[in-house]
């Protein structure tokens, strides 16, 4: 099983593949968009992540096409990859909710200036 919690780039790669297969460059663009250009994956790093996720059975190769003479291989999320992403998303949601609740409590107990 993979390391939980997931590292952010891994989480974003899985998220980029959640709604359908994408090729490598598509994943790079999608991850940049999802993270407001904060996470900019490079090809070597991305393929390291692909290798790891593929070896663990979370993603798999989908189809190939050739665009402008360049080979594009599409990857898609497997069922166990979707389950992993779902578990991680729920974990993050719980954390975020807990933080929001605590912050609300803090706002209500903080002494106000007269």
């Amino acid at each position: 099983m993979s390391d939980v919690p997931l590292q952010e780039p891994t989480f974003l790669v899985l998220t980029a593949l959640a709604d359908g297969p994408r090729h490598g460059y598509g994943v790079i663009q999608e991850v940049a968009a999802l993270s407001d250009n904060r996470v900019r994956l490079r090809a070597g790093t991305l393929y390291g992540a692909f290798d790891r996720l593929e070896a663990q059975g979370f993603i798999e190769a989908d189809r190939e096409e050739i665009v402008d003479g360049r080979l594009r291989r599409y990857y898609r999320l497997t069922d166990s990859g979707a389950a992993l992403l779902d578990a991680e998303a729920q974990r993050l949601t719980r954390n975020a909710e807990a933080a929001t609740v605590r912050l609300r409590q803090r706002a209500s107990t903080e002494p106000r200036l007269a």
């Binding site: 090729h23 490598g24 460059y25 790079i28 490079r42 090809a43 070597g44 790093t45 991305l46 393929y47 360049r70 080979l71 594009r72 291989r73």
Partner: peptide, 26 residues
């Protein structure tokens, strides 16, 4: 071939040399 495709897609137009960070990453 697939990796080269991505690298070329991702490269800024007119570039003739890989960016050093990209090279180190590869």
């Amino acid at each position: 071939d697939e990796l080269v495709g991505i690298l070329l897609d991702d490269a800024a137009p007119g570039r003739t040399r890989p960016e050093w960070r990209e090279a180190a990453d590869l």
